[in-house]
């Protein structure tokens, strides 16, 4: 089975996020960027499927500016076969990403699209679901385990109450959760091999997708800082304080 793995370049999880002074967004100048950690997990899973013989070919896709090629290169160093870079400097919302991915799916004809459940920058948690809807494919979100079973996948999903196990027929869209696997480090020889793997350069126009935004960001603000608390002597005082504050 051919597996398509979309990967997103995001602010590194270790970076202290700073909001721009005009509140138009997060400051991305001179900060470290890396692959969305959830996408690292989907890359790892795809590579494991290939090692196990369930996947025949693995393709990474990234949509965004020039530097996204580095994110694709990281996935190639982890073991993905080849990449597709859809270049654009514009902001791309989940629906536009899903539409581009749909066009790529129609061209590449994978049986499985495996992607992170969300990206840690905007936390939208929408792309996988929208893509499944656009394709009319079954979806299994928040995967904790994936096993191939003939023409279908058995997927353990992380839900509030525990693990829900479902069966989806292929082709399908699966979004992965944090505990599915532990991504490998790319070894030195594989980093050098990744240099020679191909990355196709495309644009949204190649796929005839209009990526103009549907949403307007009004303002981005830091979360309110924590204010000092007060000590209470006993439960009675606690209850009265909570009532005073209108919490209960």
């Amino acid at each position: 089975m051919k597996v398509l793995v979309p990967v997103k370049r995001v602010l590194d999880f270790n970076v202290k996020v700073r909001v721009k002074s005009d509140q138009s967004g997060v400051d991305l100048a001179n900060v470290k960027m890396s692959m969305n950690p959830f996408d690292e997990i989907s890359v790892e899973e795809a590579v494991r499927m290939q090692e196990a013989g369930t996947a025949t070919e693995t393709i990474a896709v990234s949509i965004g500016p020039e530097k996204c090629a580095e994110t694709i290169r990281t996935s190639l160093a982890m073991g993905i076969d080849r990449g597709i870079h859809v270049k654009t400097d514009a902001e791309v919302e989940p629906l536009a990403v899903a539409k581009i991915l749909k066009a790529i799916v129609e061209e590449e004809k994978p049986e499985l699209v495996l992607l992170g459940k969300q990206a840690i920058d905007d936390d939208s948690n929408q792309t996988g679901q929208m893509l499944a809807a656009l394709l009319g494919w079954p979806q299994a979100t928040f995967a904790n385990s994936i096993t191939k079973d003939g023409d279908s996948l058995t997927v353990g999903r992380e839900v509030d109450g525990g693990i829900q196990t479902i069966k989806v027929s292929l082709p399908a869209v699966v979004t992965v959760d944090l505990r599915l696997n532990e991504p490998r480090y790319a070894s030195l020889p594989n980093i050098m091999k990744a240099k020679r793997k191909p990355i196709d350069a495309k644009t949204p126009d190649d796929y005839g997708v209009d990526i103009s935004p549907r949403l307007t960001t009004l303002k981005v603000a830091e979360p309110a800082g924590r204010t000092a608390g007060v000590k209470v002597a006993d439960a009675a005082e606690l209850v009265s304080k909570l009532k005073e504050e209108g919490v209960i």
């Binding site: 580095e70 290169r73 990281t74 160093a77 480090y185 790319a186 980093i191 990744a194 240099k195």
Partner: peptide, 15 residues
């Protein structure tokens, strides 16, 4: 180079 950045970052993660 792009590879050197990858090598450095990988070594950092491992460390």
């Amino acid at each position: 180079t792009e590879e050197q950045v990858m090598i450095r970052d990988m070594a950092r993660q491992f460390s």
